[in-house]
């Protein structure tokens, strides 16, 4: 349901080899991060879709799909990349008034796209 959202394949290729044997260092420079958008009862669905289209350049179809995921599941990973990249996106999202956070792609809460019910963040289900 959610897996197609983030550009996962390239991320895995990018990090697999380096971190595995890297003397236990946790801060490999290319650990991928996710930008998460959270549901809230105020932001209009049309506006959220517009922001995804205009800021990320996503098609209307993709933007609507992500928007519905936010609405129905409470959150959605809408972009991935380096920490700096997703932080820049987060500031932009806050500029638009969307509720955005960043998190490490692997190991973090919901890092595996949350399909195994790992949402555990209290907000649970809404809408």
């Amino acid at each position: 349901m959610t897996v197609s959202v983030a550009p996962r394949p390239d991320i895995q290729e990018g990090t697999r080899t380096g971190t595995e044997e890297a003397t236990g260092s946790l801060t490999a420079p290319d650990i991928p991060w996710n930008l998460v958008i959270w549901n809230d009862p105020v932001n209009l669905m049309s506006y959220v879709s517009y922001v995804f289209q205009s800021y990320f350049g996503y098609s209307g179809t993709k933007a609507n799909k992500l928007m519905m995921e936010v609405h129905k599941k409470g959150r959605s990973i809408v972009a991935s990349g380096s920490k700096e990249q997703v932080e820049r996106h987060a500031v932009a999202m806050h500029g638009f008034g969307l509720w955005a956070t960043v998190e490490k792609a692997s190991g973090g809460p919901g890092g595996k796209s949350g399909k195994s019910g790992g949402s555990g963040q209290g907000k649970g289900k809404r809408g």
């Binding site: 806050h94 008034g97 509720w99 956070t101």
Partner: peptide, 30 residues
């Protein structure tokens, strides 16, 4: 706080550090 939300869930220190670097310009954008 809703206009200027924390950038990380459950990590107040990291969110605060991020605020130090970005909040002023976010306020100005808005």
């Amino acid at each position: 706080l809703r206009l200027l939300p924390d950038v990380m869930k459950n990590d107040d220190d990291a969110s605060l550090e991020f605020r130090q670097l970005t909040e002023r310009s976010l306020r100005e954008t808005k």
